[in-house]
């Protein structure tokens, strides 16, 4: 079971969180023309990375904040966590 540092609450057990997928995906702006390809990439196409991966988690049974977590998908090592409004560097 992972131990995730919520930037708002501190170290918490994985079972308080729910997983939210790739954190680097940006939703195309509203009312903007988007090509089929770009929209498909946004909806469906994800890389299945081995190694460092920025992903979203929601602290569901805690502060209910969505957070960004940099995790190694192979070793589960967590390098960094960010608040929703903090940019991935």
């Amino acid at each position: 079971m992972l131990h995730i540092k919520c930037p708002h609450c501190g170290m918490r057990s994985q079972n308080e969180f729910s997983y939210g997928g790739d954190a680097t995906v940006k939703r195309p702006a509203l009312n903007k023309d988007v090509s089929d390809q770009d929209w498909n990439n946004f909806i469906y196409n994800r890389k299945s990375l081995r190694g460092k991966h920025w992903e979203l988690w929601q602290h569901l049974s805690g502060c209910r904040q969505w957070i960004k977590v940099e995790r190694d998908t192979a070793t589960h090592e967590i390098f960094k966590t960010l608040k929703a409004n903090e940019e991935i560097s």
């Binding site: 729910s18 939210g20 939703r27 979203l56 929601q58 904040q65 969505w66 409004n85």
Partner: peptide, 13 residues
Amino acid sequence: LSHLEYYLQLVWP
């Protein structure tokens, strides 16, 4: 609820 929170916190802060 999670859906609304997602958009408010991440997409349209």
